[in-house]
Amino acid sequence: MDCHDCHQSCQPKSHNLGGKLFNFGSKKLLKKNFSQGSTTTIALVGSPNVGKSLLFNLLTGTYVTVSNYPGTTVEIAKGNRIIGGEKVTFLDTPGMYSLIPITEEENVARNLILNQKVDLVIHVVDAKHLAKMLNLTLQLLEAKLPVLLVVNMIDEAKKLGIWVDENQLAHRLSIPVVSMAAVKKVGLQKLIAKVADYVRANSLSIAY
C-alpha cells in the first residue's frame, strides 16, 4: 500500500527493476541492482502482517508503510545498513503464507527468494501463531535456503500467556533464532549481532 514504496521502487530510474522481477533472463542484473556495492543481501519474508516492514524500517532507517492489516506491502523495497563493518542490503517483501503463491504479490516474494540470489532469508513470524508460521520456515529449510528466524510480537504473545523458548527453537531447527517485539525495539540489538555473525562468516567463506 505504498506511496513511498512506490516512490522507491516504481520511479523511472528503478522502473526496470519491477519489470525484471518477472522475467528470469535478468537474474544477474537484478542481483547487481539490489546490492550495489554491498556484499550481503538479506530478504525479510513471512506471512502478512507479522511486522516485516516495521522491522525493515528499524533496520534500515528508511520508511515503508506499516499498517495493521494483511497485504500492506505490495512491492519489494530495499534499504541498507552497515553491519559488521559491511554494507548489508535488506529487502522488504510482500507477505506470503506459503511457498506456493496464490496472489500476485505473494509471487513477488517467492520469486525473489527462489530465483534471485539472496544471501540470507530472515523469516519473520508471529509468536502468537508459532505452529502456523513454522510451516513456511520448514518449506524454506526444505529449499536449502539460509534462514534466520525472527519470532516477533512476543509482547502480544506474553499477554495471551504464550512463551517461546528461542534457544530450544534454534536447537530444534538448527538455525539462529531471535525473539523480538519490534514495536518496542526489543531484540533489535540481538538481531543485528546475529546478522553481523553471519556477515563475518560469509565474508570469510568468500575470502577463502
Partner: peptide, 11 residues
C-alpha cells in the same frame, strides 16, 4: 484447489 491451499496455508 486454490481455496484448500489457502486455508491450509493460513493454518
Amino acid at each position: 484447489d486454490k481455496i484448500v491451499k489457502k486455508l491450509l496455508s493460513m493454518g
